[in-house]
């Protein structure tokens, strides 16, 4: 495998609220490779979106990166630690959009309603390359065609509210790719979309990845989308990575009780009609009241009293880069 383009090491991002400290991301580590998709999956409050925002250095106050490294191999080949860069400095602004593109969940609120699609695209293009307005407009039309927008020369003058949800999300993808980044972060890119539109957007992202050897971080709560798109998976729960590995191992040989329970509780079109679902007892704790020890222990069917509620489990590695943080596996595995 090629060199990783992005390496995250022990990333911790905390939010310092009046009521206490929320450890939104607590020691995330993963590698991202060109041409591959890393899926980050988990339920609300697991820290998947804060991880993405940390990489882009757009964590809002009172949040702050308190530890770890985010090593990006830049276009020049030089490796920089994004954590050490000022979040609003010129280097970071060049990297955001220029080297790491971003697609958000809600295309309606991330596109401006006051400017046409073209104005926004041309701005994004000229921010990162010295093209004339005319050349940038031609480039914008090319980009719209690339993301599969019919009649791009006409649609470039449309406002975002004149477009359907699917077309808006395509414009978002075009915007994210305007400066030809090597890394694309897609944070719940299809959550607000209908299922047939979701299929179109997932297919678009997969095609662009093939054509441009993009490294993609796909953040979602939907295990179906992960199964469909990801090469490697990180499963998070309450700010901690509980399990990570190749997609097939995560789905067919999950080791962490949370991953196992989560997979059993997903409704499926393949199920027998009216089949009861396996459940995980209780609900996700409030982030300010994170349980001691393993954060999953109060809901875990395999919890060991005195152990799981006391000690934070360390990550244990298995073959094939399959890693889990669970006391069931603390014995060293050869």
């Amino acid at each position: 495998m090629a060199e990783p383009i992005l390496q995250v090491r022990g990333l911790s991002t905390y939010f310092f609220a009046d009521e206490g400290v929320v450890r939104a991301v607590d020691g995330a580590s993963f590698d991202l490779y060109p041409g591959r998709t890393l899926g980050i999956v988990g339920e609300s409050g697991c820290g998947k979106s804060v991880t993405a925002r940390s990489i882009l250095r757009i964590v809002e106050r009172p949040g702050r990166i308190v530890g770890g490294e985010i090593l990006l191999r830049r276009h020049s080949g030089q490796v920089v630690d994004l954590v050490t860069l000022p979040s609003d400095g010129s280097a970071m602004r060049q990297i955001r959009g220029g080297e790491i593109g971003l697609v958000f969940q809600e295309p309606m609120s991330s596109l401006s309603a006051f400017h046409t699609v073209g104005v926004q695209l041309i701005e994004a293009i000229r921010l990162h390359s010295p093209l004339s307005k005319k050349a940038a407009r031609a480039r914008a039309i090319e980009l719209l065609a690339l993301v599969g927008i019919p009649r791009p020369a006409h649609r470039i003058d449309a406002y975002s509210f004149e477009l359907s949800g699917g077309l808006r999300q395509r414009v978002m993808v075009a915007l994210a790719l305007a400066a030809e980044p090597h890394v694309l972060i897609a944070d719940e890119p299809t959550t607000a979309l209908d299922v047939t539109t979701q299929a179109q957007i997932l297919e678009l992202i997969a095609r662009l990845q093939r054509e441009r050897d993009l490294a993609v971080i796909l953040i979602t709560h939907d295990m179906g989308v992960i199964a469909e798109m990801a090469d490697d998976v990180v499963v998070m729960y309450l700010g901690r990575e509980v399990e990570k590995g190749p997609v097939d191992a995560i789905f067919h040989a999950p080791r962490h009780p949370y991953t196992q329970s989560l997979l059993r509780s997903i409704p499926s079109v393949l199920a027998e009609p009216r089949a009861r679902l396996a459940t995980i007892s209780g609900s996700i704790p409030h982030p300010l009241a994170r349980p001691a020890g393993c954060p999953f222990h109060p809901r875990c069917p395999d919890a060991m009293p005195g152990r799981c509620d006391a000690d934070v489990p360390v990550e244990v590695s298995f073959a094939d880069n399959h890693v889990t943080a669970c006391h069931l596996y603390t014995e060293p595995v050869a």
Binding site: E203, G224, A227, E228, D248, S268
Partner: peptide
């Protein structure tokens, strides 16, 4: 066919409308 199935071994041959 558009519903993603939670199984990477079943990456479907989708009908994309």
């Amino acid at each position: 066919s558009a519903v993603p199935v939670p199984d990477p071994r079943r990456r479907a041959h989708r009908i994309v409308l």
